[in-house]
């Protein structure tokens, strides 16, 4: 995992974990890897991982079992909402990038439909 160096790392770790959860690589109720293991995997400071996990605990997407570690929430609604947020973020980026290329909002759907149809053929 490569991090952008101009965005706080803990935010990027959060995003990374959100993606893992949304993609089903970390499932509802499952234990996530230990802090040190994540730190090693992502080549980041243990403190930074802890900060990211703390925030995700506060948001309810993770919960801590004393002495056992961090687990993904079993709240299906919250998980669905989290996934939707990721989708919205991607769409937001897409819309902005298209605007930069001169494709305005009202022609977006037409352009996208045309593209999907052509790429199918």
């Amino acid at each position: 995992m490569e991090f952008k160096d101009n965005i706080p790392i803990y935010l990027q770790i959060e995003q990374y974990l959100y993606r893992q959860i949304a993609l089903g690589k970390m499932k509802a109720g499952e234990k996530i890897p230990s802090v040190r293991k994540l730190a090693l995997e992502l080549t980041v400071n243990v403190n930074t991982v802890q900060r990211a996990l703390q925030q995700m605990n506060d948001q309810g997407i993770l919960y801590t079992k004393r002495g056992e570690g961090n687990f993904v929430t079993e709240d299906i609604e919250l998980l669905a909402k989290t996934k939707q947020t990721l989708i919205d973020n991607q769409l937001d980026e897409f819309v902005q990038n298209m605007a930069k290329l001169g494709v305005e909002r009202d022609s977006l759907v037409t352009v996208l439909e045309k593209y999907l149809k052509e790429s199918e053929e």
């Binding site: 952008k4 160096d5 101009n6 965005i7 706080p8 790392i9 803990y10």
Partner: peptide, 12 residues
């Protein structure tokens, strides 16, 4: 380091 990045600057 986070204060630096908060301003959208890389450490470098």
């Amino acid at each position: 380091a986070d204060d630096i990045r908060q301003n959208h600057k890389s450490i470098e």
